[in-house]
Computed example of a mutant assay.
Amino acid sequence: MRRAQTDGRLRPDVDPEVLVDQLRGACHHRLVTPSRPVNEEFADSLVANLLRENCF
């Protein structure tokens, strides 16, 4: 993640430790909420929220 920040692919203000917590929490929440699956669309949305606009 730090390399992605250095390369300009990840927002510079993202704290990698907090990011891992957010991703894990989002996926865990989906796993305990059967009507909201962890699927490719959901994963893409999580990643898109992290990347700079011009990188996705």
Results as ranks from 00 to 15, higher is better:
Met1Thr: 12
Arg2Pro: 07
Arg2Asp: 06
Arg2Thr: 12
Arg3Glu: 11
Ala4Glu: 08
Ala4Cys: 04
Ala4His: 05
Ala4Tyr: 10
Ala4Ile: 01
Thr6Lys: 04
Thr6Pro: 00
Gly8Asp: 11
Gly8Pro: 05
Arg9Val: 00
Arg9Gly: 00
Arg9Ser: 07
Arg9Pro: 00
Leu10Gln: 01
Leu10His: 03
Leu10Lys: 02
Pro12His: 06
Asp13Glu: 11
Val14Phe: 11
Val14Ser: 08
Asp15Ile: 15
Asp15Thr: 14
Asp15Gln: 12
Asp15Met: 08
Asp15Lys: 09
Asp15Tyr: 13
Pro16Val: 06
Pro16Glu: 07
Glu17Trp: 10
Glu17His: 12
Glu17Gly: 12
Glu17Cys: 06
Val18Leu: 14
Val18Phe: 05
Leu19Arg: 02
Leu19Asp: 06
Leu19Ala: 03
Leu19Lys: 01
Val20Cys: 01
Val20Lys: 11
Asp21Ile: 04
Gln22Tyr: 08
Leu23Asn: 11
Leu23Pro: 01
Arg24Val: 15
Arg24Lys: 15
Arg24Asn: 08
Ala26Tyr: 04
Ala26Leu: 06
Ala26Glu: 12
Ala26Pro: 00
Ala26Ile: 03
Ala26Trp: 04
Cys27Met: 15
Cys27Ser: 07
His28Gln: 15
His28Ala: 14
His28Gly: 02
His29Arg: 12
His29Pro: 00
His29Gln: 12
His29Gly: 02
Arg30Asp: 04
Arg30Tyr: 15
Arg30Leu: 14
Leu31Glu: 12
Leu31Met: 14
Val32Lys: 04
Val32Phe: 09
Thr33Gln: 08
Ser35Ala: 15
Ser35Asn: 10
Arg36Ile: 11
Arg36His: 13
Pro37Phe: 03
Pro37Thr: 14
Pro37Lys: 09
Pro37Arg: 10
Val38His: 04
Val38Met: 09
Val38Leu: 09
Val38Glu: 10
Asn39Gly: 04
Asn39Ala: 03
Glu40Phe: 08
Glu40Lys: 06
Glu41Gly: 03
Phe42Ala: 07
Phe42Gly: 04
Ala43Leu: 09
Ala43Trp: 00
Asp44Cys: 03
Asp44Asn: 08
Ser45Met: 02
Ser45Ile: 02
Leu46Cys: 06
Leu46Ala: 07
Leu46Glu: 13
Val47Cys: 03
Ala48Asp: 14
Ala48Val: 11
Ala48Tyr: 12
Asn49Ala: 14
Leu50Cys: 01
Leu51Ile: 02
Leu51Met: 05
Leu51Cys: 02
Leu51Asp: 01
Arg52Gly: 01
Arg52Trp: 04
Arg52Val: 07
Arg52Pro: 03
Arg52Tyr: 05
Glu53Tyr: 00
Glu53Val: 05
Glu53Met: 01
Glu53Trp: 09
Asn54Gly: 02
Asn54Pro: 00
Asn54Ser: 05
Cys55Ala: 06
Cys55Leu: 04
Cys55Val: 13
Phe56Lys: 06
Phe56Asp: 07
Phe56Tyr: 10
